[in-house]
């Protein structure tokens, strides 16, 4: 069987999907990154190799997410794309006609506006991360409820409490305050969802024309409370697509297919990279007062990539090719 590999290395999760030639998602793996992107990616590849039949041929590899360059080097990517483009490509393929994508991940949230299948505008959270997955995770842990139960509990609310959602720190203080006053847990959770949605729409979605169909994806889309809060705030139906939590990886696989449509062989290093010794090291360049912290990736002791230098002194010296238009 032939197919494409999509890899999304995010701050919180590392996702891999295998997509066959017809665009069908055959396997999807969702792992926690836990601050060890290289190790977790290798682990993901190992698990994927186990699940896939032996006669598999990888015709193309795409990487995305904040660790896209790293993942691209480790796995041998044919296309390295930012997460906005990847999410947009995935949503517009899985949900034809989509005009608005709400995406909330571990560290950032984005809104993507599409018209006629083409991205026309987008925004990412800038100064404040209030309302992202990590914060919900933290609050669930503090309240000692499994994150999977968060949404279900929030849906039980009858009178959501108003929570100050402008800033994650203040939101937490306010939640504690409401809790001490004796409000019920479901009402507080539902109130938090509403506050985060308000914050998202005011900061990320400001000035954007949100038209249906609206798709909600990213890890936080698993939270039914957030979905309902979005529907109430927008007055629109909000779709959570299948594979909502690995959409970045799906997009990367689709982009890999698009890239390889013109022919050529994939740069995929093979599933054997799970056993290869990769090391990320670094040094401070003393060529100028910028003192750039240069990252160096080695494979079995050989330098295969460098980045982090402002002037290109180190990154250009390897002839490393970034993705061009």
């Amino acid at each position: 069987m032939k197919g494409y590999l999509g890899i999304d290395v995010g701050s919180v999760s590392t996702n891999l999907v295998f997509m066959d030639e017809n665009g069908e998602i055959r396997e999807a793996i969702y792992l926690r990154t836990r601050g060890q992107p290289i190790f977790v990616l290798q682990e993901g590849l190992r698990q994927l190799a186990e699940r896939l039949p032996g006669n598999i041929v990888i015709s193309g590899v795409g990487t995305t997410g904040s660790g896209r360059y790293l993942a691209g080097i480790i796995a041998g990517a044919d296309v390295v794309k930012n997460e906005i483009t990847s999410h947009a490509v995935a949503a517009s393929t899985l949900v034809p006609g989509v005009q608005t994508i709400l995406e909330i991940g571990g560290q950032d949230s984005k809104i993507i506006i599409l018209r006629n299948g083409v991205v026309t505008d987008f925004a990412m959270n800038t100064v404040c991360a209030a309302g992202t997955g990590s914060f919900l995770d933290q609050q669930a842990a503090r309240l000692n409820i499994p994150i999977e139960e968060f949404g279900k509990l929030a849906l039980k609310s009858t009178v959501p409490v108003r929570i100050a959602g402008r800033c994650a720190v203040f939101a937490e203080s306010d939640m504690i305050h409401k809790q001490q006053m004796g409000y019920s847990l479901p009402d507080i959770l539902a109130g938090l969802c509403e506050a985060l949605v308000r914050n998202y729409l005011n900061n990320v979605g400001k000035g954007k024309e949100i038209l249906p169909p609206v798709v909600f994806q990213g890890g936080v889309a698993a939270n039914a409370g957030m979905r309902r809060a979005f529907e109430q705030a927008l007055g629109l139906e909000v779709h959570v697509p299948p594979h909502y939590n690995v959409m970045g990886a799906v997009g990367a696989a689709l982009l890999a297919r698009e890239k390889m449509a013109g022919g050529g062989t994939s740069r995929f290093r093979g599933f054997g990279v799970a056993k290869t010794r990769f090391k990320a090291g670094g040094f401070e360049c003393e060529g100028c007062p910028n003192l750039c912290e240069v990252v160096e990736i080695t494979r079995e002791g050989e330098v295969i990539a460098r980045w982090g230098d402002r002037c290109g002194r180190w990154s250009n010296s390897l002839g490393y090719k970034e993705n061009a238009v």
């Binding site: 904040s66 794309k81 930012n82 906005i84 483009t85 950032d108 991205v119 987008f122 990412m124 238009v325």
Partner: peptide, 12 residues
């Protein structure tokens, strides 16, 4: 963050 936005804009 800057690079992500820039790349996404150029893709757009």
């Amino acid at each position: 963050g800057l690079m992500t936005r820039l790349e996404a804009f150029i893709d757009l």
